[in-house]
Design a protein around this nucleic acid. Structure first.
Length: 396
DNA sequence: AATTCGGGGCT
DNA sequence: AGCCCAGAATT
């Protein structure tokens, strides 16, 4: 055993020292009684089938309960069994996930569904270790499914659980660091109820969402008040400790709303890897920040001065690159969209194709009437662009 | 260990 | 305008 392990063991021992078997038993009893009384009725709590539990847990990654519910209901209608999911066409998968974000989740789910059908005889592995072999299932999701569906006393540590347990035990490790997970794993293992592990894990979720909230925790109503170290010290507001802060990069685009003589718009399917993989948008031309600002300023200036309607710089750019399109002289509008680590700024430019042009087409390109946009999986920024165009009556 | 993956809801 | 959320894969 090396130095770090000794230190780790000592810290866990320090956290759990006064958690005697009697205290652990009382904690379990109080916590589960509260859960039995107060638990939320959620669609994925109707049964403990691994397939539906799995679907809910993947959807709930980084996504809030209220957002997930309608997606969950529809997903189980479209893909009632793991076999249905395993061989569904990808456009249907993406449509089912449209607007949920983190689209690789649903692609990974299909990979995992095929693993279940082809490698595991149609049955999910029944342990956390086994479940982790499936694509998209990591430590958290494996623990959640194993505990809920198969009654394994496995921790399921997410941001919620780290918040609750950091306050309960005064764990002041930085939860932004991946290595911190092991502290919570060890402490949860010390108190989890082997008879109702799934309920223990879900009780922690419910407590974290209703009482032990990020700001202003409702400690006066908390069933675990008498067990909570930081409540007794009055320091619960300092937990959890999170140090790292994310930086946002800005990206600038022109979105080309290109309409042909038949009233169809050009749609492009994004690359199969990376951000918004395989979703559909208008053609996007990335421009530099300064270039974008030039177009933007010229647009705003001309709007306040209607004697000058030409946006010379923008017109020069797009007209030169795409002479087969008659570009409107000013942008129709602008949208912005914030992702977790970047922000898009998008100027929307409208143009109609000259009648004589022969349209080139390829695999990842479509010409589509506006009333059929809904057949494609569109990311949020494209939805916003559509709203702007609709409001300006370009999609009638 | 750090970065890359969406989007909504809250204060 | 930040911060948070029932995280995992990739580099």
């Amino acid at each position: 055993m090396n130095k770090q392990q000794v230190k780790f063991n000592a810290e866990i021992e320090n956290y759990t020292r006064d958690w005697t078997p009697e205290k652990v038993a009382a904690f379990r009893s109080d916590f589960l009684s509260w859960y039995d009384e107060e638990k939320r009725t959620l669609p994925w709590r109707i049964n403990q089938e691994p397939y539906s539990v799995w679907v809910s847990e993947i959807m709930l990654q980084q996504t809030q309960v209220a957002t997930v519910i309608p997606y969950y209901e529809r997903f189980l209608e479209w893909f009632p069994t793991v076999e249905d999911l395993a061989y569904a066409p990808e456009d249907k998968l993406l449509k089912a996930w449209e607007g949920l974000g983190y689209y690789s989740r649903v692609r990974n789910m299909q990979v995992a569904a095929r693993q279940v059908v082809e490698d595991f005889g149609g049955e999910f592995p029944t342990t956390a270790e086994g479940l982790k072999q499936l694509k998209g299932i990591g430590p958290y999701t494996a623990g959640a499914i194993a505990s809920i569906s198969f009654k394994e006393a496995a921790p399921a540590v997410d941001g919620n659980v780290m918040r609750v347990f950091s306050r309960l035990f005064g764990i002041d490790e930085d939860i932004a660091k991946p290595s911190t997970l092991k502290y919570f794993d060890a402490v949860v293992r010390h108190v989890i109820n082997p008879e109702r592990p799934g309920d223990m894990n879900q009780a922690t979720m419910d407590l974290g969402s209703s009482i032990c909230t990020p700001t202003k925790p409702q400690c006066e109503e908390c069933p675990l008040q008498s067990y909570c170290l930081t409540y007794q010290q009055g320091t619960q507001a300092n937990y959890p400790v999170k140090l790292k802060k994310i930086k946002v990069t800005h990206k600038y685009y022109l979105a080309l709303a290109k309409e042909n003589t038949e009233g169809l718009f050009e749609m492009i399917q994004r690359p199969s890897e990376g951000l918004l993989a395989n979703l559909w948008t208008f053609p996007l031309v990335e421009v530099s920040e300064s270039e974008y600002n030039t177009y933007h300023n010229e647009w705003q200036t001309s709007e306040s001065d209607d004697t000058r309607l030409q946006n010379e710089s923008l017109l020069t750019k797009v007209q030169a690159e795409m002479p087969e399109v008659v570009w409107q002289k000013q942008p129709v509008g602008e949208i912005t969209h914030v992702f977790s680590h970047l922000k898009w700024h998008v100027l929307i430019v409208y143009g109609h194709q000259r009648a004589s042009v022969i349209q080139e087409t390829n695999e990842r390109q479509l010409w589509l009437a506006p009333d059929r946009f809904k057949e494609l999986a569109l990311p949020k920024p494209q939805e916003k662009i559509n709203q702007v165009l609709k409001k300006a009556r370009y999609l009638d």
